[in-house]
Simulated scan of single mutants.
Amino acid sequence: MSTNAQIENSIAKALQMEALIKKDRPKLEGRLSAGVIDGFFADNVTSQNTSTGAVIARQSKRAATLSQEDQIAVLSILVQAVRNAGKQNHLPGEILADLGVGKTITKSVKSVTDAASLVIQAYEAHVDELRRVGVLPADLERITELRDRLTSTNKDQEARKLSSKDQTKIRNEAHKRLLEAMALIIGAAELAFASDPEHLELYRALRPTKSSAKKPAAPQA
């Protein structure tokens, strides 16, 4: 069973245990250390929230990656179009160098945004020459907008990566405490309901499922 499946299994059983504890708390609490039941309730909520939050964080990260790839592709095309306009119209070598002609553009954020910045700076320095070959202020506005948006998207994505890691860490720690509390509560129930086996069985049935290690395959004859 995967880690996510184990956690979902634990949460489902913890929710059932909550209903039992609310009725049986007076019989259980005296057999447990202070804070075990309250900690169980708190960690159950945390496990639920971070389990859902971790999924959302991963989905957001994937969506941001797709958006980033699209922006890289569009910006790369626009930058190359300006370079091509300069080359095809035989602008002086100095201007072509300022545009970044001859420099490879990769699919990385840094490569594309650096190339866009060169074009923006070149347009400011050689506006008349570039206007004559058909590069309009609207083209530069679009390149600037995409560069800035791509830079922002990249920062957001890095923040989401941290958010996802934080969510996973919080979830795993809460899940560990939840399992410990459930074991203690079931142990207390063994004594509290020793004379009521039917009720005791309700607690025993809520032991979280543990993953079993895979047995190595038998050697072939």
Rank of each mutant, 00 (worst) to 15 (best):
A63G: 11
A63W: 02
A63N: 10
A64Q: 14
A64D: 06
T65H: 14
L66R: 13
L66S: 15
S67E: 14
S67G: 03
S67I: 05
S67W: 09
S67T: 14
Q68E: 06
Q68H: 07
Q68L: 06
E69C: 15
E69G: 15
E69Y: 11
D70A: 12
D70V: 15
D70C: 10
Q71D: 14
Q71R: 14
I72W: 00
I72N: 03
I72M: 07
A73G: 14
A73Q: 12
A73P: 06
A73E: 12
A73C: 11
V74R: 12
V74K: 03
V74F: 06
V74L: 07
V74D: 08
V74A: 06
L75D: 07
L75M: 11
L75R: 01
L75W: 00
S76V: 09
I77F: 12
I77P: 02
I77W: 13
I77K: 09
I77T: 04
I77R: 10
I77S: 12
I77H: 12
L78Y: 01
L78R: 02
L78P: 00
L78C: 02
V79P: 03
Q80K: 13
Q80A: 07
Q80P: 03
A81C: 11
A81K: 07
A81M: 05
A81Y: 03
A81S: 11
A81P: 09
V82Y: 00
V82H: 06
R83W: 02
R83V: 00
R83S: 03
N84G: 04
N84Y: 08
N84H: 08
N84R: 05
N84A: 09
N84C: 13
N84W: 04
A85K: 00
G86Q: 01
G86T: 00
K87G: 08
K87R: 10
K87I: 10
K87F: 02
K87M: 05
Q88D: 06
Q88H: 13
Q88T: 13
Q88N: 15
N89H: 07
N89W: 01
N89T: 12
N89M: 04
H90A: 12
H90K: 11
H90C: 11
H90Y: 15
H90L: 14
H90M: 15
H90F: 15
L91G: 04
L91C: 00
L91W: 10
L91K: 10
P92I: 09
P92N: 10
G93H: 11
G93M: 08
G93V: 03
E94A: 07
E94T: 15
I95N: 05
I95W: 04
I95R: 04
I95V: 05
I95Q: 01
I95K: 02
L96C: 04
L96S: 11
A97H: 15
A97T: 15
A97R: 15
A97L: 01
A97D: 11
